[in-house]
Design a protein around this nucleic acid. Structure first.
Lengths: 154, 154
DNA sequence: GTGCCTGCAAAGCTTTTGCAGGCTC
DNA sequence: GAGCCTGCAAAAGCTTTGCAGGCAC
């Protein structure tokens, strides 16, 4: 617990500095939201999820503030905005070091796992040649049944 | 023009039969919508797009009917439902023969092109082994600047 | 003190749903 | 003729926006 907190304290300081550098104010709302993501690095939280989570530490926070903050943090590259097709955006902490990871989405229970490895760089080069696109990003999702749901099929 | 119509007339008959086989009624609304997609095989139409398009041939059609029909056709595998992140679903005719094609999305003008080639089957096998997922589908999107927008950068 | 931020409420958008009437089979 | 389909309007969800007050700097 203490060790885990140690883990992200550095990260937290760096991000605060980044905000200051962009002349964004360090409000307690922003700090609380940021901490929620640092404490849940492996989760994919929707705005509503985040709101519920943060409300415990900061009961007066408004949902609109959560939306605005998520937007801001994604704009700065601190969070990554994802769309898993369930009608709401989901955010996760953007670890710069593992540049690209892809998502496995269970079409039964909605659980989202991650899959590392890129392998798509060579494909991007081919696309630039063939289609004239200058590719800057890609998004790869796999849909299927997770380990748990697999066994309950039919 | 006539040749292009010849091209999809067979396809059209086959789909009508499929609908009948499922005991779905062949209403003029459904026929008109289906034809709109057969005449625009290369487009990625939203519900609103489809609605506007179909309104010319069938002015009394309702938007709700378009939504219901798109849903039905996607359910039957006749259309493919896509989400390109612009806040609305987009549909395209699902050509069974070119099983998997991927999308190139211009982040400036929103234009969507296609990119053929699958290459991901081996990755799916690895995922099943590593993560325990039974993968049934995948979705790969590339984001970048199309040929036209590329030249107008900065 | 300045002006960015916030909370609240209202509005915006896409999509879904309820219902009475209509049309396909 | 039976019951699925349709059009209309209302509602549902997620997200954005306007505004007056408040807080970080």
């Amino acid at each position: 617990m203490a060790a885990k907190q140690e883990e992200w304290k550095d990260e937290y300081q760096k991000i605060c500095e980044l905000l200051r550098h962009h002349s964004y104010k360090l409000t307690p709302q922003r700090q609380t939201i940021l901490k929620a993501f640092l404490e849940n690095e492996d989760q994919h939280l929707s705005a509503e999820d985040t709101f519920m989570m943060v409300k415990h530490n900061y009961p007066d926070i408004g949902l609109a503030t959560v939306y605005r903050t998520l937007d801001l943090l994604a704009e700065l590259g601190i969070l990554q905005k994802n769309d898993f097709g369930d009608g709401r955006s989901r955010y996760e902490f953007n670890r710069k070091d593992e540049h690209h990871h892809h998502h496995l989405i269970c079409i039964k229970c909605g659980n989202v796992s991650e899959f590392d490895g890129d392998l798509l760089e060579s494909l991007e080069a081919e696309i630039e040649k063939r289609n004239g696109y200058q590719v800057v990003d890609h998004d790869l999702k796999f849909y299927g049944y997770c380990n748990k749901c697999k066994s309950t099929l039919d």
